[in-house]
Simulated assay, not measured.
Amino acid sequence: MAYTYRCKDYPGNEACPGSFTAETEAEVMKHVELHGKVAHGEDPDQWSPEDRQHVKKLIRSS
């Protein structure tokens, strides 16, 4: 099984082409955090629990 996150699915990021697929949900989350930092200038340590939960809901298994 693989897990995928598409940045454009997060509200406000519709124009972002970032997409990440990995073997585990935790690995995808690490990619999302790095992407948020590098591509969007965010500090993942400052993400609220609600923001993290929303991201996790957007990670799809295949």
Score class of each variant (00 low, 15 high):
Met1Gln: 06
Met1Ala: 10
Ala2Leu: 14
Tyr3His: 13
Tyr3Val: 01
Thr4Tyr: 01
Thr4Cys: 05
Tyr5Ser: 00
Tyr5His: 05
Tyr5Pro: 00
Tyr5Asp: 00
Tyr5Lys: 01
Arg6Leu: 06
Cys7Ser: 04
Lys8Cys: 11
Lys8Gly: 10
Lys8Ala: 12
Lys8Trp: 12
Lys8Tyr: 12
Asp9Val: 03
Tyr10Cys: 11
Tyr10Ser: 10
Tyr10Glu: 11
Gly12Lys: 05
Asn13His: 14
Asn13Phe: 15
Asn13Pro: 00
Glu14Gln: 12
Glu14Ser: 13
Glu14Lys: 14
Glu14Leu: 06
Ala15Arg: 15
Cys16Trp: 06
Cys16Gly: 02
Pro17Leu: 02
Pro17Val: 03
Gly18Met: 06
Gly18Asp: 09
Gly18Leu: 04
Gly18Cys: 14
Ser19Asp: 05
Ser19Glu: 14
Ser19Val: 11
Phe20Ser: 02
Phe20Met: 07
Thr21Pro: 02
Thr21Arg: 08
Ala22Tyr: 05
Ala22Glu: 12
Glu23Val: 06
Glu23Asp: 15
Thr24Tyr: 03
Thr24Arg: 06
Thr24Leu: 03
Thr24Ala: 02
Glu25His: 11
Glu25Ser: 10
Glu25Thr: 11
Ala26Ile: 03
Ala26Tyr: 01
Ala26Leu: 09
Glu27Gln: 12
Val28Glu: 00
Met29Leu: 15
Lys30Cys: 02
His31Trp: 10
Val32Asp: 10
Val32Glu: 10
Glu33Arg: 13
Glu33His: 14
Leu34Glu: 14
Leu34Trp: 13
His35Phe: 09
His35Gly: 01
Gly36Thr: 00
Lys37Gly: 02
Lys37Cys: 04
His40Leu: 09
His40Trp: 09
His40Cys: 05
Gly41Trp: 05
Gly41Glu: 07
Gly41Phe: 04
Gly41Ser: 09
Asp43Lys: 07
Pro44Ala: 04
Pro44His: 05
Pro44Val: 02
Pro44Asp: 01
Asp45Gln: 14
Asp45Phe: 12
Asp45Ser: 15
Asp45Trp: 11
Gln46Leu: 15
Gln46Pro: 06
Gln46Cys: 12
Trp47Ser: 03
Trp47Tyr: 12
Trp47Leu: 02
Trp47Ile: 00
Ser48Met: 09
Ser48Asn: 10
Ser48Val: 06
Ser48Gln: 08
Pro49Lys: 08
Pro49Gln: 10
Pro49Tyr: 07
Pro49Ile: 08
Glu50Trp: 05
Glu50Cys: 03
Glu50Thr: 09
Asp51Glu: 12
Asp51Cys: 04
Asp51Gln: 12
Asp51Gly: 01
Asp51Asn: 07
Arg52His: 03
Arg52Thr: 01
Arg52Gly: 00
Arg52Gln: 05
His54Tyr: 12
His54Val: 05
His54Thr: 08
Val55Gly: 00
Val55Cys: 02
Lys56Cys: 03
Lys56Gly: 00
Lys57Thr: 13
Lys57His: 11
Leu58Ala: 06
Leu58Ser: 04
Ile59Ser: 13
Ile59Pro: 11
Ile59Gln: 13
Ile59Met: 13
Arg60Cys: 03
Arg60Trp: 01
Ser61Arg: 14
Ser61Ala: 12
Ser62Met: 10
Ser62Phe: 11
Ser62Trp: 09
